[in-house]
Design a protein around this nucleic acid. Structure first.
Lengths: 108, 108
DNA sequence: TGAATATATGAGCATATATTCATATGAGAA
DNA sequence: TTCTCATATGAATATATGCTCATATATTCA
């Protein structure tokens, strides 16, 4: 038993039926992995080079680098090359804000 | 060239090195799919039965039901059985809040 | 009771994901 | 140049994910 007005209202509640939802899903998905979340929490404290991130996580450099690539593609972090090292930091305040807003919900 | 204090500070920036990050990752991951996001946007407007959700999305009932199960497990939605139908709604204000905060970031 | 409707569940499949390993790039030091 | 260190990249693999199909459960109505 379908409710036509409910269906119609529901359709218009979804942002412009275009890529917008897909883009948003990619954003959340980028947050949706424990390794990437840990990286984001650490970068929220200070910028770090790949080498330090790997050491802090106890993971291989390669795995960290792959995840940083994902975070870069989602524009959650940015990089700054300095000599041999590459330093990563959050790309803006909003990244940290969403991170901690989600975190607060966890405790409820 | 590892920076020991940076690594130490980074480690303490990650929430209690336990399940908390894993739980948070699951929360974000639940948001990280276009179909589930659409469902959340629709439920943010009003509660709906499975049948209406499927109609609004143009998807099979089974696929919708599977995704609702995921959302239930993540406690983002709750269900209310009423006769043959099962009505779903967001489990709280915070679900909508995080949804729209993420959405705002998309537009930046 | 039986038929019809609404939803849920499990198997199967195609694709995506996270990690590891091996190798490549690139910058500084010898 | 050659060597080493820091990072990136591609292939391979194991696991996870999202959907479809078929079937099961549950509620209402005849």
């Amino acid at each position: 038993m379908i409710h036509p007005e409910t269906v119609k209202a529901a359709r218009s509640a979804v942002p412009d039926d275009g890529d917008r939802v897909v883009v948003l899903a990619r954003l959340f998905k980028a947050y949706g992995d424990p390794t990437r979340l840990k990286i984001l929490f650490m970068l929220a404290a200070s910028e770090m080079c790949v080498c330090d991130i790997a050491a802090a996580l106890g993971m291989q450099h390669s795995a960290v680098s792959h995840q940083l690539t994902v975070l870069l593609r989602s524009r959650l972090v940015r990089q700054k090359k300095q000599g041999k090292a590459v330093y990563y930091s959050l790309s803006g305040k909003h990244v940290k804000a969403l991170l901690f807003q989600g975190f607060d919900l966890t405790g409820i």
